[in-house]
Nucleic acid binder design. Structure first.
Length: 516
RNA sequence: GGCGGCGUAGCUCAGCUGGUUAGAGCAGCGGAAUCAUAAUCCGCGGGUCGUCGGUUCGAGUCCGACCGCCGCUACCA
């Protein structure tokens, strides 16, 4: 049973999660659930990044200590991920002792192995005495800090610890080009390769005057720079440097957003190379959720609240929509209209209706017991199902989650056509057609069962509900992908179907649409 | 500025290494059916495949230019 260690980016603790965070967690969870279905020993890590300077500010604004603040944020995030059905096996927070221990250990290992890769140098930048921070880029407008436009920015020098990132350029180029360290999708790999080709600068990895952090080993004046600290979380969760951390490490897949590709595909592997620790096998950088075609922004009032999006049809429906419509590669657009359309067409009318009519007919015509198919399932629906299973696996293996979701609904649509083709209600009126009716009902029940299993990575709770309607002796989680082709549900007592995906009234939806 | 991507039916998008009359889903219109959440199924789309050139027997599919969007451009101290 191969292990599969999958991680998501840890989230900054400076504000509530939104749809963008949700896409990443749900996508990673979908992959994790799919790998479990394929029989891997999955270890799925999520967590929180709690050391950034913005945390200190947010806490101060709220009038609480940083620790109280991050505890609060961690609870909030964890609550949302629970509502969305995330099946993570571990939850790491960078304020935890186990993380600090690993950060320290990794730095010490670099100090021992490659002492030349760590050095002290001066950083010189523009310092705002109002913020007590260095400023750069968009934070400077007209030569002044945007927070304190009445104050002069003063040039200031600071001594920092640096990592000799430049030494790893060639090594990284080779590793990425060869695929040994896979950066995906291709557009992100190309970006990283071009960055590498243009050369690397050394980076500073420590800060002074920022006590909310992990002490830099051997220099009590400094703390570890938050990015350097945060990246290590993936390793911390394995128990490094304790013996046995290799049971999980290296990570098989880091799921991240496209905005932090550089950190994960250049800095992180360089850190590991310096420390002599194995590199993760693969990084997948997904795109962003846009709102009405534009970047989501809280200040512009265009950030859809996760609460509202979950409240509309429940967490499962939101998962499905994000993965089917936004996808996990390029940017995608969220609108209430598209959400409503997908929910209605795919979940309610196609899948929900198929489950409803199939189980209802088993009840009406066979007293609720799935009959036996005496033809050996030699039907067009079976042929379509076999093709569907192959296409589903191919899509999921390539992390084209939207295509995987499409395959699930397509199989349900094919089953709906099968119902029309065979017209069970006509067969039921002719006693000589009893065998044919058995075949149709058995095929439909088996298809519904398969759909429950295939849908579980996308909407686990509803899939579980469908599965339970079928009266199977074993739990859904016990079914492996290999068993799906020959899945046998004959003789099972099915429950009369409830409405799985109720369609809300249109006037209510219109009212909700105005609320972001 | 540099590098890269995108621009295909009202909407969301498929179209791999160039080759029959350019496809799917949704929406819309017409019809059938009644097992089912008034759900389902069937039929109907003639879109200059952003624009203009070029290569080729033949180009959404390759090359060039242009127009319009977008991404990355390095320690956001």
């Amino acid at each position: 049973m191969p292990k599969f260690y999958i991680t998501t980016a840890i989230d900054y603790s400076n504000g509530d999660p939104h749809l963008g965070h949700a896409l990443e967690k749900v996508g990673a969870d979908c992959i994790a659930r799919y790998r479990r279905l394929r029989g891997d020993a999955v270890h799925f890590l999520m967590g929180m990044d709690e050391h950034s300077q913005s945390v200190v500010q947010a806490a101060a604004t709220a009038g609480v200590t940083p620790q109280v603040w991050v505890d609060r944020m961690a609870d909030t995030f964890a609550r949302y991920w629970r509502e969305l059905g995330c099946s993570h096996d571990d939850w790491i927070r960078t304020t935890e002792q186990r993380h600090a221990r690993t950060v320290t250990a990794l730095l010490e290992r670099i100090q021992q192995r490659r002492p030349d890769d760590l050095f002290v140098a001066e950083y010189e930048g523009l310092y705002c005495t109002g913020c007590e921070e260095f400023k750069q880029g968009a934070q400077i407008v007209d030569g002044r800090c945007i927070e304190h436009p009445t104050l002069e920015l003063v040039p200031r020098k600071e001594e920092n610890h640096y990592l000799r990132l430049s030494a790893y350029r060639d090594r990284l180029l080779t590793l990425i080009t060869s695929g040994e360290f896979a950066v995906e999708p291709a557009i992100r790999r190309n970006e990283v390769l071009r960055l590498l080709e243009s050369g690397l600068q050394d980076i500073s990895i420590s800060r002074v005057r920022q006590p909310w952090g992990i002490p830099f080993p051997g220099d009590a004046q400094q703390t570890v720079y938050v990015w350097f600290d945060a990246l290590i979380n993936y390793l911390s969760a394995t128990g490094f440097p304790e013996a046995g951390y290799e049971r999980l490490w290296p990570a098989d897949l880091h799921v991240i957003g496209k905005g932090i590709t550089r950190f994960h595909c250049v800095i992180w592997p360089a850190m590991l190379l310096a420390a002599g620790v194995a590199l993760p096998r693969r990084v997948w950088a997904h795109g962003y959720v846009q709102w009405e075609g534009a970047k989501m922004s809280k200040t512009a009032g265009t950030a859809v609240s996760l609460e509202g999006a979950i409240a509309r049809y429940g967490g499962d429906a939101l998962r499905y929509f994000l993965l089917r419509e936004i996808g996990f590669e390029a940017d995608g657009n969220f609108t209430w209209e598209r959400f409503d359309a997908r929910y209605t067409a795919d979940l309610a009318d196609t899948l929900g209706n198929l489950v409803s009519r199939s189980l209802a007919m088993v009840h009406r015509y066979r007293g609720g017991t799935v009959p036996r198919d005496r033809t050996g399932y030699a039907t067009p629906l079976e042929a379509a199902a076999r093709r569907g299973l192959t296409a589903f696996a191919a899509a999921m293996d390539h992390v084209t989650l939207n295509e995987g979701a499409a395959q699930v609904i397509e199989l349900a649509a094919r089953a709906n056509r099968y119902v029309e083709e065979t017209a069970p209600w006509k067969l039921a009126k002719d006693a000589t057609k009893a065998g044919e009716l058995d075949t149709v009902l058995a095929n439909l029940a088996r298809t519904v069962a398969r759909l429950a299993v295939l849908a579980a990575p996308f909407f686990p709770a509803k899939a579980e509900e469908i599965w339970s309607l079928l009266g199977a002796p074993q739990p859904l989680a016990a079914v492996g992908f290999d068993q799906l082709e020959a899945l046998n549900v004959e003789g099972q007592s099915v429950t009369k179907p409830p409405v799985l995906f109720p369609k809300p009234r249109n006037d209510l939806l219109t009212a909700q649409r105005s609320v972001t």
